[in-house]
Amino acid sequence: MRQIVLDTETTGLNPRTGDRVIEVGCVEIFNRKLTGNNFHRYINPERDSDEAALAVHGLTTEFLRDKPKFAEIAEELREFVQGAQVIIHNAPFDLGFLNAEFTRLGLPPFSTYCAGVIDTLVQAKELHPGKRNSLDALCDRYEVSNAHRKLHGALLDSELLADVYLSMTRGQNSLTMDVAAETNAGGELVEAGPLGEIIVVAASHEEEAAHELVLAGLDKNVKGSCIWRNFSPAGVTAA
């Protein structure tokens, strides 16, 4: 599967009031491996950045003045993400800006070129409810070094997010019932063969009787029916 981790920097917070994209950074992942095939462009937004935004990314009007306009990099960006699953931290923000840039050029929204979007902020909130889930916080949590991150940068943040995403989802591809692949002595991939039969060992009559005694003791302590009665299958006896 081809995935693209994407981040942008902008002149402000709202594309509806004229704020523009000034940097796009993309990092390619293929089958959960970083490929090194990245996309990075600075963009002349044809306007100044807000002071608050400038303090975050440090990209001055002077620095961006000789950079290409978005219209000049739109086709490159579209081709790079075409058909890939795109991974973004706080996706509505970046997609809102990119969709606005593409619409301004009379093109379909940026998101229509993507095979799907994963929002790592949503994922992180589900995995770590009630905790800070900024990119910096996730770097600390997953031990991804961000010591070199003094200012926000689209490519740097995409590289950090790629490492965070791979760490955050590390166990997912092993929790399947698919037939595994092994390597033979010559290093060639071979099928591991069908999964073995799952054997269920039923409790003996003595074990069931002992279990019932434990439940009865719990019933007495709570002066009623203990909660574990809800998980005891009625009418099931050992074979």
Rank of each mutant, 00 (worst) to 15 (best):
M1N: 08
V5C: 03
V5D: 10
T8G: 05
T8H: 08
E9A: 02
E9S: 05
E9M: 04
E9G: 01
T11H: 06
T11W: 08
N14S: 12
P15W: 07
R16S: 11
R16F: 10
D19E: 13
R20D: 00
G25E: 01
V27Y: 05
N31F: 01
R32I: 00
K33F: 04
K33D: 01
L34K: 08
N37F: 05
I43E: 05
I43S: 05
P45F: 05
S49T: 07
A53I: 02
A55V: 01
E62V: 12
R65P: 00
K67H: 03
K67Q: 14
P68W: 02
P68I: 02
K69H: 13
F70Y: 12
A71H: 06
E72H: 03
E75C: 04
E75P: 00
E76K: 09
E79Y: 08
E79R: 14
E79M: 10
F80W: 03
V81S: 10
Q82Y: 11
G83T: 09
A84H: 04
A84F: 08
I87T: 08
I88A: 08
H89Q: 13
A91G: 03
F93E: 02
F93G: 04
L95N: 02
G96D: 01
G96H: 07
A100M: 06
A100E: 05
A100V: 01
F102L: 06
F102E: 03
F102W: 09
F110H: 10
Y113E: 03
G116C: 10
V117A: 07
T120F: 10
V122N: 10
V122W: 04
A124I: 07
K125E: 11
E126L: 15
H128S: 03
H128Q: 06
K131Q: 15
K131A: 14
K131L: 13
R132C: 11
S134K: 14
D136Y: 15
D136P: 02
A137N: 14
A137G: 13
L138Y: 15
L138H: 13
C139T: 13
R141V: 14
R141N: 14
N146T: 09
H148Y: 12
H148E: 15
L151H: 14
G153F: 13
L155G: 06
D157T: 13
D157L: 11
S158T: 12
S158E: 10
L160G: 08
G171L: 14
Q172S: 03
Q172G: 08
S174Y: 13
T176G: 09
V179N: 06
A180C: 04
A181Q: 09
A181P: 00
A181R: 09
A181I: 03
T183A: 03
T183W: 06
N184Q: 00
E188S: 07
L189D: 00
E191L: 11
G193M: 04
G193K: 09
G196L: 11
E197T: 09
E197H: 04
E197I: 07
I199H: 05
V200R: 08
V201D: 11
S204V: 00
A210P: 00
E212S: 10
L213S: 08
L215G: 00
A216E: 12
L218C: 07
L218F: 03
K220F: 07
K220A: 14
V222P: 05
V222D: 02
S225Y: 00
S225V: 13
R229L: 01
F231N: 05
P233H: 09
A234T: 01
T237W: 07
A239S: 10
A239N: 12
